[in-house]
Design a protein around this nucleic acid. Sequence first.
DNA 1: AGGCGTTCCTGGGGGC
DNA 2: TGCCCCCAGGAACGCC
Length: 274
Amino acid sequence: MPELPEVQTVVNHIREDLVGEQIIGIESIWPKVLHNFKPEDLIKKNIDTHIEDVKRRAKFIIIQLPDFIIAIHLRMTGKLYFLNQNELPKHASATLQLKSKKTLVFEDVRKFGRFYLYKDLEPINERHGPEPLDESFTSGLLMDILSTKKRNIKALLLDQSVVAGLGNIYVDEGLWMSGIHPNSISNAIPKTKIIKLHRSIQTILMDAIAAKGTTIIDFSVNGESGKYADQLRIFGKAGEPCQKSKNKIKKIRVAGRGTYFCSKCQHLYLTSCD
DNA sequence: AGGCGTTCCTGGGGGC
DNA sequence: TGCCCCCAGGAACGCC
């Protein structure tokens, strides 16, 4: 399940080859993959324009052209990479044909991933919170966010309109590292713990990007895959001993998601005491 | 406001 | 071995 580090890894991987390219065709093999446009709409707009930049915002891959953007969301199983054989993979949802004869393929087993055509980032910005690795995302900002809401902390951190880019894996990791029970109520968490949570989120995301993510991402020929899986401390480890307390890691359901935690290390804050 | 259920999908795991 | 059932989950949406 691609989250911020996995999306950043994809961007880092394809960016150099894509900047300066021209898109000469788009094929939607699974028609629903194009959420708000048709292939002709894109081609009409695209004559003689070059890709200016490829970047990430929240969990979107942003292909920036002079007058519009293509935003790609991988959802659960989306993969975006340059095709280097003749036949398309079994679960190809769409392809972008480039002037250099390269083909960018979007492969997506569960077909949740989508392409969006927008004038600019505004439609994405208006439904997304701050980037957790931005300078503007301070511990003070996180404190404001948590204290002004009375919400389940895991649900809140998964909410893209509150903080952008976090998903199930990195939320569990962050809550474990900062010693906060996933069922805690946001405005009951003490300040010192919020500072710890802030630092944990940033550390975990940076380490995961450095390791090229957790999810196995097939980059075609060299089959590069994320190595952060080796560094996970809590996610997917039900029944194993916690690294800190040796207590048995539990799996429960929080905010509709499978949630891993250590009942000894992670304190449940339900009512404000300061 | 916020929690919860539903929808979209398919591969894979559990149970028998 | 084989088959069926159900689950996993990001985000949008509707309902209470």
